[in-house]
Design a protein around this nucleic acid. Structure first.
Lengths: 121, 121
DNA sequence: TGAACATATGAACAGATAATCATATATAAT
DNA sequence: ATTATATATGATTATCTGTTCATATGTTCA
């Protein structure tokens, strides 16, 4: 989706100076991809709910599933993603696995997000 | 996907006190959906790039397409989404339509996001 | 060891999403 | 009026994503 410039429109207005300036001040392209991926983690309501719930305290998979009215499998899959992204960590206690937030970074992000959507009215 | 609790696991550990407490302190469910939707806007690299580029100055559709090496149509579609979400506004000058950020809110969000991913190393 | 439980995970499926393609609309210029 | 240009948009398509289903893994207890 990046190397496919088949129909870049041909008759373009192109304000060269503006484009050149924007290009020079534009952040590294890879950074922008990372940024999109970062926001993508928070773009699913199941994951948001999990993170929100874990702000209180660590919790086992079953409890989270019960609390969110979701299946154990669905929660487990999302927890795996969150763990891969290093947003949560876990510890096993017998049969039970407890998950908790990896750091309080996440709390800040959620709080800021909420502030933004509440400002918007 | 919310009213379908077919296979909520039956043999559950459920720590009642923990669940009850989390439930009581949990934000409004609708807020969490809104929050996910909010982050979803920033979860696509094309949209992130557009927003990033518009931080400098207003820009027309063609210039953005050229700058991001994308098709006019793709950019136009994404601009429509961004406008619906009130992240960008536009003005027409003859044949050309110039887009700009709706407010500097967005700058803050992008900056915070970048800070977060850069802290992570 | 075997039964019960808690979690993890691969495969399949369904819904969402973003790009493309074709075309419509809007404006300007001749 | 006709043509060229700039943008918008509906339809289609390909891909991505999240859930479910079935089952595997890991742990405890009798």
């Amino acid at each position: 989706m990046e190397d496919k410039n088949t129909d870049i429109c041909e008759y373009m207005c192109i304000h060269e100076d503006i484009v050149a300036h924007a290009k020079s001040t534009m952040p590294d392209e890879e950074q922008l991809y990372d940024l999109a991926d970062f926001f993508k983690i928070f773009s699913d309501s199941t994951r948001i709910k999990i993170l929100s719930v874990l702000q209180c305290e660590e919790m086992c998979v079953c409890d989270i599933a019960q609390l969110l009215n979701a299946s154990q499998s669905a929660i487990s899959h999302q927890l795996r993603i969150l763990k891969q992204m290093k947003l949560v960590k876990n510890r096993r206690d017998g049969k039970t696995v407890f998950y908790s937030l990896a750091d309080d970074h996440i709390h800040t992000i959620l709080k800021q997000g909420l502030e933004h959507i509440n400002e918007k009215n």
